[in-house]
Design a protein around this nucleic acid. Sequence first.
DNA 1: ACGCGTTACTGACGCGGGTTAGTCTGCGGA
DNA 2: TCCGCAGACTAACCCGCGTCAGTAACGCGT
Lengths: 350, 350
Amino acid sequence: MVAMEARRPTSADVAARAGVSRTTVSFVLNDRPASISPATRERVLEAARELGYHPHAPARQLAGGSSHTLGLVLRQSAQQVAGDALLAETLRGVTNAARARGFRVIVEALDPNDGPYADLLRSGRADGVVISGPRLGDRELEALVAEGFPVVLQGSLPGLDAPSVDIDNRAGAKVAVAHLLSLGHRRIGCITNAPLAYTAAQERLEGYEAALREAGIEPQRTWIAEGAFDAPSGHRAMTELLGRSDLDAVFVASDVVAFGAIGALRSAHRRVPEDISVVGFDDIPLAAFFDPPLTTVHLPAYELGHAVGEALLDRISRAIVPRRTLLPTELVVRASTRGSPSTRSPRRDH
Amino acid sequence: MVAMEARRPTSADVAARAGVSRTTVSFVLNDRPASISPATRERVLEAARELGYHPHAPARQLAGGSSHTLGLVLRQSAQQVAGDALLAETLRGVTNAARARGFRVIVEALDPNDGPYADLLRSGRADGVVISGPRLGDRELEALVAEGFPVVLQGSLPGLDAPSVDIDNRAGAKVAVAHLLSLGHRRIGCITNAPLAYTAAQERLEGYEAALREAGIEPQRTWIAEGAFDAPSGHRAMTELLGRSDLDAVFVASDVVAFGAIGALRSAHRRVPEDISVVGFDDIPLAAFFDPPLTTVHLPAYELGHAVGEALLDRISRAIVPRRTLLPTELVVRASTRGSPSTRSPRRDH
DNA sequence: ACGCGTTACTGACGCGGGTTAGTCTGCGGA
DNA sequence: TCCGCAGACTAACCCGCGTCAGTAACGCGT
């Protein structure tokens, strides 16, 4: 026998070793409903074990199966990805949901606005894709949906006929502002988490406005400023707000942005929460350790990833998937909010 | 012609449409060094375009090619992943390095210590893997390396014969502490970023000790406390330190942990940097917006991911890969450090 | 007219495994 | 005795593509 390079064993090798046909091996290993005697089954299993046999995934897929792979496409810009403290959690959620059903996850982080990810699907490398942070006017995405590929959106994109999973931004923002109102605040500002072209920013702003209106307060233009993902933008927005209105509370639709906003308040010698209350949104891991610990809206990142993963898996297996799934958020009250000076002790009714 | 379900076109369809053989199609599409007349080449290209032809990746791989896929295995615990503010950047680095060479990335976030990831390689789904946060005593990893699969470590793991890419923890820590020394501090504490079983924690601690020794200071046992990834652990460690030594500076080997430590200092009414200087490590996006802005060691997360990705790609293409690559860090001086009270004005020589 | 090298292409096999349509054996019932 | 049938397997085809070993046509020098 000549020295041979170790070649990965194939099902034919297993068959030979067990003294059966390749077909039998396939039946045993895939638990097909065929009559195989227990003795033979055991021989095959043992041969496979001894040889360290692992089915060749591509061959299996070629033979008609699926790729058992999900694509996760991140459409956010590089800065957004870098600043997204919860992305890792969402990723864990998706991969775990996938693994639970025997799937893997290919991640595509598209740097610029380009990057053809459609090939993932068209080349049969993935059975479906999750689009995280879908952008308006994404021709590639529209084409994919039109061709009937399984696509699920994480986030929202009106006018696209694909299931989407998101957190309930509107409700979350509303609860945050309601909390501020319940503390007696009336002049409540808002700093958005992103430019309003982003639907999440729009939704959170709507929640803020709805809460005010329900309390009989008409939101003022001058109470609102735009943040843009990072702390510096929060600093700028807060400075802006400070310059044009006298607020007793602010709802900042992102913890990271709130971080910058609090910095601006500190520079202006306004104490939180004594002089002004601040509520954030996201509940990033560091939120509890801000100074002061930040009252914020908890965004279930892991669950979001898990839910979107499952939705995609359902679509792939042709199950019915709700057009739109909204995950609930939860208000986490910490120390950055307290009653407004005028109502500090006597709890005010309404 | 009967109504037929849209089937993905194959190279045979393209061949038929262009009036050539499948072989010719393959040659044209893969730019093989074969003599194909410009006219034919154009016909094939056009037929492919018209049909919307996309080669079937698994078939292509089966026919002898590689999977053109990298595996990225995250061995960190769920908490670590959640708290790792730089993970997203590293991920971007890896995926971009991969895409630049036509590769994709499958991410496996292993929740518990289990999770068989070896199958990624054995089933031919990936051509190689990056192991992020490798753990000692990982039998699966050892087996993979022994079998000669392309494996590159992100982080370090002594005693395993695989290339590794990491940042220079020791040098980074040393520079941080040297900075503190240059400001005149002498009683410098250290809070580790993680338990010392983690090599990165050990290396940073060594850098701290080396810097002190070079300055003729013998590090004291009582100056050192262990952190464990998150802010609360930093709070605990700082409280501990405060209770047993009188320090004028602290090197905290993780920004997140430093965040907790600063909270503890605040509780103890010790001002930063007036009473005590603090240097962090990692330079997470929020570090610049701490109160005070944190002096820290910048960890090039994107570059790290990129470098480890390239190292793996090199290994896959059988290029020579250095046994160990260390990326340089950079000290970023902000406002959490300044000269010790005793040396505030007169700059002290030594 | 013939040999010989290019140029331009094609036939057929193999990659590894799933699957359908059998084959062969043994046995119970009519 | 012979049919029918269930149990236990197997031969052969197919998935889509890369690739080696040809083959046919053509030009060219002698």
